[in-house]
Design a protein around this nucleic acid. Structure first.
Lengths: 336, 336
DNA sequence: TGCTATTATGGTATGCGTACCATGAAACGC
DNA sequence: GCGTTTCATGGTACGCATACCATAATAGCA
């Protein structure tokens, strides 16, 4: 593969002149430019970013660390990020942690070695260490969707506690008194925030929080299935399920169908994070949705501002509004 | 950010010795190793891959060029790729072309500059040039899902022509005689293959191919919506729609619902590429599915084999089998 | 004891593009 | 016509990790 020196030699100029032609910088006589460009075409020369990155200390690369690209919520967030990155000349490296601390750690190490310019991440746990590690290397980080106590870091997330509050309140308004929560992993703030919102709504309604109604699990279809199974056994008198995310709801729904439990007639089911419109023929879940594309775009924009120094004050926390959409799965008002 | 020289200086050794400690290569006295490791921890030194890549001519990076990460089919393919890449120490750079030749060209140029080790791509068109361009730079390429005449290139795709044939044949077996095809962009082989399969089935059934029953469009929800709209106007006597992919089907479905056309009672609707199980409560579409995860994994594995030289003979074309799943959207047998 | 292996460490050069400084020629102003 | 810009081009060094070759010390062996 030819280098800038090969081009220079063949065109009878110095490497720096070729560089000037490529980057349209400095003075180059039209005649010289034409000659250099001819040689570039002839050799099929493509500049090597590595040399440049080594000196400029910029790789024009951002990392996206999410839990699982398979979840349409993250897909949409990622799409928003990629759009903004691409428009600004940045590439993105995609990392799926599957909520594994070990994988996250591996990815972070690798990304630091790559000298990426910034990281957009959904931290697997609420531990501050991984983020501190990155910040110590002076690499800008934007945390998405979750928050992490004990570090000063930019955050873009939605008001998930409020969403959980609203949707629980809605269930209560329908007459539900025994609402089970199919929560996510207790180590993530999204999971705890949603449980907090749920508890707040119960409290506001004068109902006691019952710990045995909260099942911590994982944000996956399998976990939703299993948790729902356990709930049906442990809590036969529950009238509504509140799944902490779309995948848990899908898993729960699968189980309920198998057990011939009708939704919403036998059990109401609500969740957070929609499935993109169209994927389901008749959208069924009553949900609280987060602006996923917007979250990705804003996070990427904030990160880029940090990277290029446009923003360099204290860290921001951008909290996007959520929206409740009432559909069939929550059912009508029930008699207690 | 400290360099290997900083570590060396502080530990009182030569840079190469630090390198040996990091990479566990060559001879290093235990005592020296301990001292170097202590300094590495103290400084928070992280090796810079750029220097290494510059020399080794390996970036440990693969590119994934797909049309749109928002489509669950590509999401799953990408997930398969990422899994294999990660397991082998490679990172992936994600690129969405949105079927735009211009974006594809931009991405390719950028990727060549980055000296990525290999490319997994879904070419926007059947033109050979972009692939030739990359191959000329000696960068291994694996084409996914589509095929491109005129270049010798590795391909991993599924037997989409056969899938289209089978599903059309199935519609014919139900008594449908007037089947409209909502095709993809004529510039992609996936679209033409599916039309070919559709035509072959008609031919086998002794029916004449009717060009006015084939509507070329795009692989998007919007296109599906529009095409379906036009079809209802132009071809009021059609009894079945064959959407060339899931997004087209979703768009068509949206329109049919708006127009109060019942599926399958008024119009049968079948498609290719499923929506992941669970996303839809009751899977509805009769579809031909492709093994998306497997496609991603095999493509990534093949690419890695090319990259590390394990495979270096003539190019392979891996064709994965498809599977038809009959559900409600195709309906019962109709009377002609 | 003398000589070859083994262990341990370092110097120098390389890969590639560009920042910085330097040089020279032409153009311009008065 | 002379000093000052503007234009045009080049030399050298740098960023970082490592390959290659070289050196030296210790160990092993006859």
């Amino acid at each position: 593969m030819p280098t800038i020196r090969d081009v220079a030699k063949l065109a009878g100029v110095a490497p720096i002149t070729v560089s000037r032609v490529i980057n349209n910088s400095g003075y180059v006589k039209d005649e010289t430019r034409a000659r250099v460009e001819a040689v570039i075409d002839e050799l099929g020369y493509v500049p090597n970013m590595l040399g440049l990155s080594l000196r400029s200390k910029q790789t024009m690369t951002l990392a996206v660390i999410i839990t699982d690209i398979t979840n349409p919520f993250w897909t949409t967030v990622t799409r928003g990020i990629e759009d903004v990155a691409q428009a600004n000349g940045y590439s993105i490296i995609l990392c799926n942690t599957d909520e594994s601390e070990e994988k996250q750690e591996q990815y972070l190490q690798m990304l630091l070695r790559r000298r990426i310019d910034g990281i957009l991440m959904v931290p697997v746990t609420s531990k501050a260490d991984p983020i501190k590690l990155v910040k110590k290397q002076n690499i800008p980080v934007v945390v998405m969707d979750r928050h992490v106590p004990g570090v000063d870091v930019d955050i873009v997330r939605s008001d998930t506690e409020e969403g959980a509050y609203q949707i629980t309140k809605y269930l209560l308004s329908l007459g539900h008194q025994r609402i089970a929560m199919l929560a996510g992993p207790q180590s993530t703030s999204t999971a705890t925030d949603r449980v907090d919102g749920y508890c707040r709504a119960l409290r506001d309604a004068g109902l006691a929080k019952r710990d045995d109604h909260i099942f911590w699990g994982e944000f996956s279809i399998e976990a939703g299935y299993k948790t729902a199974q356990q709930m049906l056994t442990d809590l036969p008198d529950v009238t509504a399920f509140f799944a902490a995310n779309n995948f848990i709801a899908i898993g729960a729904m699968q189980l309920l169908k198998e057990k011939n439990k009708r939704v919403p007639e036998d059990i109401a089911l609500v969740t957070i994070d929609d499935i993109p419109p169209g994927f389901t023929l008749a959208p069924f879940f009553t949900v609280v949705t987060q602006p996923a594309l917007e979250m990705g775009k804003q996070a990427a924009q904030l990160l880029l501002n940090r990277v290029d120094g446009t923003v360099n004050g204290v860290c921001q926390e951008i909290i996007l509004p959520v929206q409740m959409i009432i559909r069939a799965s929550s059912g009508e008002h029930i008699s207690p």
